[in-house]
Nucleic acid binder design. Structure first.
Length: 291
DNA sequence: AAAACGTGGTC
DNA sequence: TGACCAAGTTT
């Protein structure tokens, strides 16, 4: 079972969103920044911040010169702010060890902080037009349905997932890279998690899920992430105070965001450990590297 | 290998 | 309204 590349490529050419990191003039650095920002964060929230970042830090070396605090503040409310710190560290590594050029090699990319199996291949494919399987949550869902005839993807298995997608890719490097983007776009726009728009699907006729009678997902239940009341929420509240000020603040300013002192202090400590917050000699708190 | 890690929109 | 979901990585 394989999906007709031409159908998907034609659909992509007609339907794909005009995203700034897909423009021909976008640099590899721009692609890398987009991929990090898009980890678990929707396109609509990434786009404006991406524009700000590329205008402010058009190259890895430009970002390498910024302070960690500047980067964390500019990250705003994209979420998972450790990504900002890791991207800053990656920028420094690229500037210092790779002549300010984003690496093309998957294994070299994998060695950079914050770059994992997905992002390394996304950069190789989308920034450099290489043929290599790019597997994200969209692609896993599309493959689970269209190829395996399941209702949804089961638990991830990097090795098997890469192999599944590798088998689908067209021979030609450039075509394979566009095909990878098309697979993701199909999952994002048509083959969605809830209420897939099968009537609009370019590979409807070849879809194993359709041919299989659209069975429901039968894999293990997916764990739902709680947020309210968790350390994640409290860390977010604490960091939000610091994002809003340039001057270091007294602990009392942080204490007001959460009533449970034990949880509050544990979270502040974890932020310090993560390097997202620093304490000044005077005992005040601030974003890192700005004082 | 499961769990931690932000934030906001949607149905 | 609250569960589910969003271009994952790290430990």
């Amino acid at each position: 079972m394989s999906l007709d590349a031409e159908l998907l490529l034609d659909w992509f050419a007609d339907t794909a969103r005009d995203l700034p990191w897909r423009r021909p003039e976008c640099t590899a650095w721009g692609v890398l920044v987009s991929e990090i920002m898009l980890q678990q964060t929707p396109v609509a929230r990434v786009e404006p911040i991406w524009h700000e970042w590329l205008a402010r830090w058009p190259t890895p070396s430009a970002m390498a010169k910024a302070s960690q605090g500047d980067v964390v503040r500019a990250w705003g409310k994209l979420g998972y702010p450790r990504r900002a710190l890791r991207l800053h560290a990656a920028a420094q590594a690229i500037a210092e060890q790779h002549d300010d050029v984003v690496p093309q090699d998957v294994n070299t990319l994998l060695a950079l902080p914050g770059i994992g199996a997905y992002t390394a291949r996304a950069v190789a494919a989308f920034a450099y037009g290489q043929k290599c399987p790019v597997v994200d949550t969209n692609v896993r869902r599309v493959v689970a349905r269209a190829v395996h005839g399941a209702g949804d993807a089961g638990p991830p298995s990097t090795t098997k997932d890469l192999k599944d997608v590798e088998a689908l890719l067209p021979e030609n490097d450039k075509a394979a890279a566009v095909y990878s983007a098309a697979l993701m776009e199909l999952g994002a726009l048509v083959c969605t998690a809830r209420a897939p728009k099968c009537a609009d699907c370019p590979v409807f006729d070849a879809c194993a899920w359709q041919l299989n009678g659209r069975p429901a997902y039968d894999g293990p239940a997916k764990a739902v992430q709680k947020f309210a009341g968790t350390d994640r929420q409290v860390r977010g509240l604490l960091l939000d105070v610091l994002r809003g000020t340039v001057e270091p603040v007294a602990k009392a300013r942080l204490d007001v965001v959460w009533s449970d002192a034990g949880q509050r202090d544990r979270c502040l400590h974890s932020l310090l450990t993560d390097g997202l917050v620093e304490q000044t000699r005077e005992g005040l708190f601030a974003l890192p590297g700005e004082h």
